[in-house]
Amino acid sequence: MSDYIIGVTGGVASGKSEVTRRFETRGIVVADADLAARAVVAPGTPGLAEVVAAFGPAVLTADGSLDRAAMRQRIFGDEPARRRLESIVHPLVRAQLRRECEAAAGPYAIAAIPLLAEGGGRDAYPWLQRILVIDAAVEVQRMRLMQRDGIDAALAERMIAAQASRSQRLACADDVIVNDGALDALDEQVAALDRRYRALASQPLR
């Protein structure tokens, strides 16, 4: 059981996955918000039933699973519909992440939450003991996106602009890993934070 939970977040192409993989190699369980978002609307779940009740059976595929393409089309450009979907899914994702982290073996656990700042920050996740932000300059994000996804600078800029700003993410950070250089540089930063988190987790929670 892990009572000490770290939230990890960062902008697109900041290197969140590289960081969480390094924590996993040190025996730390990482609960992923993207995977949780799929789990809570899997066939047969109350979450999927609630989505269908709100949006109708047209958002289902022939096998009864959520048609994500149809769902995206349904909420695209429709702010009330998007907010309605988020009001169903986000609380379920938060609860799923908390369950996974609290059930994890190890001195502490990590909840990887890409849209933590956009989803209410610390107020929405009061059970996080600390928040670690993976930070990279916007120009680094843009370059990585263009290389990773084979897109042009304009689309990369729109993807970055669609998220919380760098300053908004940093405002909720207890810890920061700057990831704007070689990946090897992450190892030392992760090792230092792992030592710190193990020490903090060994202390009684106040």
Rank of each mutant, 00 (worst) to 15 (best):
M1C: 06
S2Q: 12
S2D: 08
S2V: 11
D3K: 15
D3L: 15
D3E: 15
G7Y: 09
V8D: 07
V8C: 09
T9L: 11
T9D: 01
G11S: 12
G11H: 02
A13H: 04
A13C: 08
S14H: 00
E18K: 08
R22T: 02
E24H: 04
T25V: 09
R26K: 11
G27P: 07
G27V: 00
V30R: 05
V30C: 05
D32E: 03
D34T: 03
D34E: 11
R38E: 04
R38H: 05
V40P: 14
G44C: 12
T45D: 08
T45V: 08
L48W: 00
L48N: 10
V51P: 13
V51A: 14
G56L: 07
P57S: 04
A58I: 02
V59I: 09
V59D: 04
T61R: 15
A62N: 09
A62C: 02
D63Y: 10
G64I: 12
R68D: 03
M71F: 01
R72G: 07
D78T: 08
D78A: 15
E79I: 13
P80G: 14
A81Q: 03
R82Q: 06
R83L: 15
I88C: 06
V89N: 06
L92G: 05
V93A: 06
R94Y: 13
R94H: 13
R94N: 14
A95W: 02
A95N: 13
Q96S: 14
L97M: 11
L97V: 00
L97N: 08
R98K: 11
R99D: 12
E100L: 13
E100V: 03
A104D: 10
A105H: 12
G106N: 08
P107D: 15
Y108P: 08
Y108Q: 10
A109S: 14
I110S: 06
A111T: 01
A112G: 00
P114S: 15
L115V: 05
L116T: 03
L116G: 06
A117H: 02
E118F: 03
G120H: 03
R122I: 02
A124T: 04
Y125W: 11
W127P: 08
W127H: 01
R130D: 01
I131V: 15
V133D: 05
A136F: 02
A137T: 00
V138G: 09
E139H: 09
E139I: 05
R144C: 05
M146N: 02
Q147Y: 10
R148E: 12
G150P: 08
D152F: 10
A154R: 09
L155A: 15
L155H: 10
A156P: 13
R158M: 08
I160C: 10
I160F: 07
Q163T: 01
A164D: 07
R166F: 00
R169S: 02
D175Q: 09
V176T: 13
I177R: 12
N179A: 11
N179G: 07
A182W: 00
A185T: 14
L186H: 04
L186V: 06
D187E: 10
E188S: 14
Q189W: 07
V190D: 06
A192I: 00
A192H: 12
L193W: 04
L193Y: 06
D194N: 13
R196C: 14
Y197A: 10
R198I: 00
R198N: 08
A199Y: 01
A201D: 04
P204D: 10
P204T: 06
